[in-house]
Amino acid sequence: MTTHLAWDAKEATVGELAARSGVATSALRFYEREGLIRSRRTSGNQRRYSRDTLRRVAFIRTSQRLGIPLADIRAVLELLPADRTPTKEDWARISECWRDDLEARIRTLQRLRDNLTDCIGCGCLSLDRCVLSNPGDELASHGPGPRRLIED
């Protein structure tokens, strides 16, 4: 059985899709059970995925790497057209759904990077004994935990 997906193939087997996408066949079957991707069945009950499933799988994997829950990924994928291959504009439209959340995550990670040493370097996590970064435990009035790392 070949696992190479020809450039002009309209459909892919689960093995071809796995080889081309870099995602295990078990993960592809899981994505299908979760409603993230779809396949049709042959008369021999074998899965066949349309070629545009490659883009969906890439979108799912990238979204997962960004920490987006599968339920949120599924909800956004449901906004794509079911009757045709999604266009660049379709992908751009659904990508906008998470822009604000991703921007907030980026700000939080930048703040963590920039303040990590000052905030937790001494191990006090803004307790009153940190006279250099938090004299008089003034950050306690803003709430519990490492306040410099938590966005208000």
Rank of each mutant, 00 (worst) to 15 (best):
P135M: 11
S63E: 03
D100G: 09
C122N: 09
R38G: 09
G22V: 04
R113M: 08
S63D: 03
N45K: 10
I106G: 05
G67L: 05
R147K: 09
S95N: 15
L5W: 00
R65Y: 09
L102T: 01
E32C: 05
D90C: 07
Q110I: 11
T13R: 00
S141R: 14
L102Q: 04
V23E: 03
R147S: 03
L116Y: 13
A27V: 09
I60M: 00
T108S: 14
G145M: 06
D152T: 12
L149K: 04
F30Q: 08
E78S: 09
L116R: 10
P69V: 09
L54G: 00
L139G: 00
T25E: 05
D101W: 05
E78L: 11
L70K: 02
A104Y: 08
F30E: 04
A92R: 11
Q110F: 13
E34H: 06
L109N: 09
W7R: 15
I120K: 02
N115I: 08
E11D: 09
D114Y: 07
R111D: 13
L77V: 05
T108E: 14
I68A: 06
T117K: 12
S141T: 13
A92S: 14
L149W: 04
C119Y: 05
R113F: 08
H142W: 15
R29M: 05
L66Q: 01
D101F: 01
R20C: 02
V76T: 13
G123T: 06
H142R: 15
L80N: 00
Y31Q: 01
W98A: 10
Q110G: 08
R51M: 02
Y31K: 02
P86W: 02
R84C: 08
D72M: 11
A24G: 10
R105K: 14
E16K: 01
R55Q: 13
T2M: 05
S126E: 12
R33N: 12
I60V: 07
A27D: 07
C122H: 08
R38N: 11
H142L: 15
L80G: 02
T13P: 00
D100Q: 13
L132P: 05
R41P: 03
N134C: 06
G136N: 04
R55W: 11
G123P: 04
E34D: 12
T108D: 12
R56Q: 10
L66T: 01
R93Y: 00
L79N: 12
E96H: 13
T3S: 08
